[in-house]
Amino acid sequence: MKLSPLLVAAAILLAPALASAQPVQGRLIARETDEPVRGGTVHLMADSQVVAQAQTDSAGAFALQAPRPGNYWLLATAPGFQASETDVFAVGAAGARVRFMIGRPMIGLDTVTAVAPGVEDRLWYGGFHQRRGENQGGRFITHEQIERQRYGQVQDILRQVPGLEVQIGPRPNFSDSRLMRVRLRQALSFRDCWSIFYLNGMRVESESVQNLDPTEIEGIEIYTNGAVPAQFNSSMGAACGVIAIWTRAR
């Protein structure tokens, strides 16, 4: 059968795209029992960003697609288990197979699992890395960037963000203490349109974050347009901007 020139051209154009994705397959296994873990979520990570994710089936199996050959690692979460990660491994042209072990927490209850968070757990469970990897809007500042610049105060970090105006002035009750307030430059016509702050996922006033030690901040998300995640879209709206700060777990 002779293929039409259009079909041949389409096959040539699609070939590089199909060849660029490498399969990463494996099973998520409970470390204590060597049994498969069903209903877990496995994230394929590259440079601290989520590039793919999948749910495990009844046999604990998962299948991901790496966007290209390179070095990756896996992060897994599952009900009743601690978040676990693999060492970095190489994904070649033929893909990779991984046997991923995940452990149960040290302390557990019948219906509730209590886990002391690690340094980055707030970012994983808060969705910071996933939103950063999806790149659907927002500006993300990591602990490494903050540490590299050696910022002295939170206001110093925010002043470096294009589109934000940071003000330090007296509180509305005319007390001696100074209050940090932030707003969008393009919204200057709305004099009282101040950005909303979240601290570790909870809505707070700016005074709750202005005295944070920058070295204790794990990550910052800043949204200055309509693409604000639902969890940060409060009843007050988000037209004046949203700033979500995540601190390092102790």
Rank of each mutant, 00 (worst) to 15 (best):
P36R: 07
T33Y: 00
V91L: 06
A17D: 01
R185S: 11
G169H: 07
Y72G: 03
T224V: 10
G152C: 01
Y151T: 02
P69S: 12
V42Y: 00
Q149Y: 02
A244F: 07
R104F: 06
G39N: 13
Q65P: 00
F140P: 08
R171M: 11
D47N: 13
A93G: 07
R159M: 08
G108M: 12
R38S: 15
I222S: 02
V51F: 04
D34A: 03
M180P: 12
L6G: 06
L6T: 15
L7N: 09
D156G: 05
Q25P: 00
W73A: 01
D57P: 03
R183S: 11
L164V: 06
F190N: 14
E205S: 14
A66H: 07
A66R: 06
R191A: 15
V119A: 13
V98F: 06
V42G: 02
T111F: 10
L64R: 10
L13V: 10
Q231S: 09
G60C: 06
I243T: 10
R31Q: 13
F62V: 00
D176P: 01
A78V: 01
P36T: 01
P79F: 00
I12V: 15
P69F: 06
Q186K: 14
C240A: 05
P162D: 14
C240S: 04
V209L: 07
L7E: 11
G95W: 11
L44N: 06
G26N: 05
Q160E: 15
Y198T: 14
A59F: 08
A90L: 11
L18G: 08
L7I: 08
R183H: 09
Q145K: 05
N225S: 15
D213T: 09
N71R: 13
N211V: 03
P79E: 01
A116K: 06
A15M: 11
L44Q: 04
I196H: 14
V154P: 00
R178S: 14
G95C: 08
G40D: 08
N135M: 12
V42A: 03
G226D: 11
T33A: 07
V242S: 06
C240D: 08
G152T: 08
F232Q: 10
R97Q: 11
V119N: 10
I222K: 02
S58M: 09
D87K: 13
